[in-house]
Design a protein around this nucleic acid. Structure first.
Lengths: 193, 193
DNA sequence: ACATGTCAATACGGGGGCGTATGGTGGGGA
DNA sequence: TCCCCACCATACGCCCCCGTATTGACATGT
């Protein structure tokens, strides 16, 4: 409610506003919940407005996905890239999961909607990029290539699994300290000395 | 088509037949794709038949979930339970993901549909049961309790993540040998000596 | 003042999925 | 034989959501 752009503040909407609201909705309730009228209600208008900006719901989804994928690069891998030590890099990657939740929540929602033809390629590109990145990190840490590939698989699987369990299933219900302890355990277990 | 109970073989259907067909559909296309008329078409009847056996779609889902949860116990944890060595136990757990795919495919589909009020408690119970089981295994392997909990979290997250990636995202595309090599890597990395 | 372009409201049609009502059919017991 | 009941078909109403068509409001330039 508070972060929603109200009618009084900005009566006129841009496609970017719609795309951003779409990403918010996806992060909260998943891709399936992304309905035109639902979104319109959130923005304080009706769908008559939406179909002036977009030809279809798919067009909105496409634009939202493009925006997310572009932002994702500089919001997840970007800040982490500066860190030389792979140990610290992985730690940061996991810690950011708790801090800046939004992007990871969207990623988690997109994985669950990977059946969708528009979603699949985006998720696949992002996932592949991240896994390659991880693999390179293990490689630079001195691992043989074959092992680095496996370790990257394992690490990324653990990341994805943790996302699903904590964001969707709410299984762990970790406190901040428990979470950091878990991350430390992951580091010790998965990163070679 | 081939495994579907055709009209000629058995013109009369039981609730169990519907529940089984529902699980098949869930495994293939997810919970959202579970529609009454879709299922009826698969079984060679119309929904007039369905609503004689079940009062609603939710009733079918409930029964299907109950059946799966009951079978899951003796199909996943059961055979593994006999194995004493936790190293071999985890190996079997992962290897069964490739052999007997169905139950894991359903679990993966259910995780994705955990928004649903009927699905959530089932997934939560099964997940918790499995993680506890893993934790006990690490405990018996000589790990201190605190570490065993973390390691169980990590291992199960890796399992869930791998399921999502291989079954839904089709990312790894591993051959049988690659898969076994990956499992070996997971064993070596996650199981203490 | 008027016209034009931009954004939005309203009304409508259509498809898909759930659930209901009611009629039909075939096999086993009185 | 005939009836009955378990099982299934057909037809319908409803709701949700997508997309279209039409009209309306407001701002700006001329």
């Amino acid at each position: 409610m508070s972060d929603a752009v109200t009618k009084l503040e900005r009566p006129r909407l841009s496609p970017e506003d719609w795309a951003q609201a779409a990403l918010d909705l996806i992060a909260e309730q998943g891709v399936a919940a992304l309905a035109v009228e639902t979104l319109a209600k959130r923005l304080g208008v009706t769908k008559g407005s939406f179909y002036w900006h977009f030809p279809s719901r798919d067009a909105l989804l496409t634009m939202a996905l493009e925006r997310w994928e572009a932002v994702e690069v500089e919001t997840v891998l970007g800040p982490v890239e500066a860190i030389a030590d792979p140990r610290e890099r992985l730690r940061e990657l996991f810690l950011r999961t708790s801090r800046e939740v939004k992007s990871h929540a969207i990623y988690s929602a997109l994985i669950r909607a990977v059946d969708h033809a528009l979603v699949a390629p985006v998720v696949e590109r992002v996932s592949r990029r991240r896994m390659d990145y991880l693999m390179m990190a293990f490689l630079h840490a001195g691992m043989p290539r074959r092992e680095a590939v496996q370790r990257a698989r394992l690490t990324y699987a653990a990341y994805v699994g943790f996302l699903q369990m904590s964001l969707q299933l709410h299984l762990p219900r970790l406190t901040a300290e428990e979470f950091e302890a878990y991350v430390d355990h992951v580091i010790v277990t998965l990163i070679p000395v």
